[in-house]
Simulated assay, not measured.
Amino acid sequence: MNTALAGTFDDARNAATLGDAKGLSSLIDGGIGPDSADANGNTLLILAAREGQAAVIEVLLKRGAAVDYRNPAGDSALMLAVLGGHDEAARALLAGGAKVNHEGWAPLHYAAFEGRDALLDALLGAGADVNARAPNLATPLMLAARNGHAGMVRRLLAIPGTDLNALNDAGLSADAWARQNRNTDIAALIEAERKRRGLPAPALRITIE
């Protein structure tokens, strides 16, 4: 990624985070690279996405910004837009071809973790894997169940391919993790869906150290 001169980058960063699409466009015309990044490895696109600046995102994508670049923490612009619940920004990135499936944490994990129901259809429509595994082996269903997002859990349970018996790295299924966090109503939803599908209870995995 290009690193702009400090003064110029400060102007571009401010334009990106404050939603000054016209000003940023002028700065790019003046020579600043659309993939310029700050000292933490956050590109202008990532900074705009984190603040939900959809108009800036569209400008950057038209100027050739790398839509799938991930910062040193592993976050892409789409992941941060989803994390912040910036629906319009996330949709602009999806329209720009942002990837929804990749190694590590993915956008659907963040949507489930935060209960971003409004973005679920958009992510799935773009091909997001409903059973994608996070680094801790959690699936989106597990994350939604753990954090008490009943609406997201119901929507994930309504998808025939959602795996109800997957286990995370601690050996917990989605309903077990929900119960561990006192989300007993969500655990009951998952157990009822497992029964409806005629599935057995998940096998326990016990690690002895």
Score class of each variant (00 low, 15 high):
residue 112 A to V: 02
residue 46 I to R: 01
residue 139 T to N: 03
residue 134 A to H: 07
residue 168 N to C: 01
residue 142 M to Y: 08
residue 116 R to M: 04
residue 6 A to P: 06
residue 23 G to E: 06
residue 182 R to P: 00
residue 188 A to M: 00
residue 98 A to P: 06
residue 187 A to D: 09
residue 57 I to P: 05
residue 182 R to I: 02
residue 171 G to T: 12
residue 180 Q to H: 12
residue 48 A to P: 02
residue 35 D to P: 01
residue 162 T to F: 04
residue 47 L to S: 12
residue 153 V to I: 07
residue 207 T to V: 15
residue 91 R to M: 09
residue 6 A to I: 09
residue 132 A to H: 00
residue 107 P to A: 11
residue 142 M to W: 12
residue 28 I to W: 02
residue 81 A to I: 10
residue 7 G to F: 13
residue 148 G to E: 03
residue 50 R to G: 00
residue 136 N to V: 09
residue 157 L to R: 05
residue 103 E to G: 00
residue 140 P to G: 08
residue 88 E to W: 01
residue 136 N to W: 09
residue 201 A to W: 04
residue 207 T to Q: 15
residue 108 L to H: 08
residue 151 G to M: 04
residue 193 E to T: 13
residue 191 E to R: 01
residue 154 R to E: 14
residue 116 R to A: 08
residue 90 A to C: 05
residue 175 D to E: 13
residue 139 T to Q: 01
residue 128 A to F: 08
residue 189 L to Y: 04
residue 195 K to T: 15
residue 71 N to K: 02
residue 119 L to V: 15
residue 85 G to H: 05
residue 92 A to P: 11
residue 202 P to D: 03
residue 187 A to W: 05
residue 208 I to F: 14
residue 92 A to I: 08
residue 8 T to W: 01
residue 60 L to T: 00
residue 50 R to H: 10
residue 77 A to K: 06
residue 178 A to P: 04
residue 127 G to M: 05
residue 93 L to I: 05
residue 124 L to D: 10
residue 22 K to R: 15
residue 107 P to I: 09
residue 198 G to Q: 06
residue 201 A to S: 14
residue 107 P to Q: 06
residue 37 A to D: 04
residue 201 A to Y: 04
residue 107 P to C: 09
residue 160 P to I: 03
residue 111 A to I: 04
residue 183 N to A: 07
residue 16 A to N: 00
residue 169 D to G: 02
residue 75 D to N: 15
residue 48 A to S: 09
residue 3 T to Q: 10
residue 140 P to A: 13
residue 38 D to A: 03
residue 90 A to H: 02
residue 199 L to Q: 15
residue 108 L to C: 10
residue 116 R to P: 03
residue 129 D to A: 13
residue 101 N to A: 10
residue 184 T to A: 07
residue 127 G to N: 11
residue 116 R to H: 11
residue 193 E to A: 07
residue 114 E to M: 13
residue 107 P to Y: 11
residue 64 G to N: 11
residue 26 S to G: 04
residue 16 A to H: 03
residue 82 V to S: 09
residue 9 F to K: 00
residue 56 V to P: 13
residue 196 R to E: 12
residue 48 A to L: 07
residue 181 N to F: 10
residue 69 Y to E: 03
residue 174 A to T: 08
